[in-house]
């Protein structure tokens, strides 16, 4: 058995990404495959994240494996001051694989260095959340039939949103064209724009969430603009409404455009968008199941 962690999307090569997508497609056709018979998966959620945990645990169950673990550090030995190392050492004795979510950044990579079983990162603070990125890629592939040469428009919080940063990195293999739509406070950080320049990835940047932008877009990736990011609440109220997508804004869009969102949404996509053929965020969430089944199998060398 080969131990293959999944810690950060940037650890994956193009071939590995494509192999995972191919695998996920098999699970989409048939999610119930008893590949994990007799296997135990540790599901360690040092901070609560119901959405991600249910998706991973469903994936294990659909593969016929068993889950041990905890869903909140308050109920675990961490609350008694146990180090992460000690918790990982203990669980690695019981489980064949550890899926972990942790509030501290780099926790999964550190765990991978001390664990004898593979680690799958289900989010480490604001650092990485590779299974989210894989499900985004899968959804893009599923809706567009390709990952190559797409125009991907990212809207909302491009400064703190780790999902957009990881997606940007993962798309580097596929010749994307990015449009970054955000207010000054939440612009795409310089670091990522430099990254694009270095790799020859085309991007445009605008404050204007305009029809011209939407009408040339293939993937419209919406993100949540959070109040706590603003020192000026008036500014938040203004920005929140400027970067809200409504059904009427999709009138002139390309027929293949799909709207994605990592969920949960608040106000950035109005309810009437749900009824358009462009809305795809609920299917996107379901794709999390198939991609996580693929990630688990890869980690176990199955």
């Amino acid at each position: 058995m080969q131990k293959r962690n999944l810690l950060s999307i940037s650890d994956l090569s193009k071939e590995e990404i494509l192999a995972l997508l191919k695998r996920a497609k098999e699970f989409e056709k048939n999610p119930n495959q008893h590949l994990l018979d007799g296997k135990v998966v540790g599901s360690l959620f040092f901070e609560p994240s119901t959405r991600t945990r249910l998706s991973f645990e469903t994936a294990v169950n659909r593969l016929g494996g068993r889950v041990i673990g905890f869903s909140d550090a308050r109920t675990s030995s961490q609350s008694k001051g146990e180090t992460l190392k000690d918790t990982i050492m203990m669980v690695a004795n019981y489980a064949d694989l550890i899926v972990m979510r942790h509030p501290l950044e780099g926790a999964a990579r550190y765990a991978s260095e001390i664990s004898k079983v593979p680690i799958v990162n289900a989010g480490d603070g604001s650092n990485q959340h590779p299974s989210q990125t894989m499900l985004d890629l899968y959804t893009i592939y599923q809706t567009q039939g390709t990952l190559e040469n797409l125009t991907i428009t990212m809207v909302g919080d491009l400064k703190y949103g780790r999902t957009v940063h990881s997606l940007l990195e993962a798309m580097r293999f596929f010749n994307p064209h990015f449009i970054f739509v955000a207010c000054d406070e939440l612009r795409m950080p310089k670091q990522y724009k430099e990254y694009c320049k270095k790799l020859g990835i085309e991007y445009e940047e605008t404050k204007n969430f305009s029809p011209e932008v939407i009408n040339k877009t293939d993937i419209l990736y919406m993100t949540r603009v959070q109040r706590e990011r603003f020192s000026d609440l008036m500014e938040y109220e203004r920005v929140k409404n400027v970067y809200t997508l409504t059904a009427s804004m999709l009138k002139g869009c390309k027929p293949n455009l799909r709207v994605l969102h990592p969920l949960p949404r608040v106000t950035e996509i109005t309810q009437d968008v749900d009824d358009t053929p462009q809305a795809y965020y609920f299917q996107q969430a379901l794709n999390g199941l198939y991609t996580r089944e693929a990630i688990i199998c890869r980690a176990l060398g199955l």
Binding site: K85, H102, L104, G106, A107, R109, Y110
Partner: peptide, 28 residues
């Protein structure tokens, strides 16, 4: 919020640019 500041462990940085000194934390 880096794990290396919260666990009894060694820190680890990768040198991205040795001339202008740009480092990247191996963990966070």
């Amino acid at each position: 919020k880096c794990i290396s500041n919260n666990e009894p462990m060694k820190t680890h940085f990768h040198v991205m640019d040795g001339k202008n000194i740009t480092l990247k934390c191996h963990y966070c």
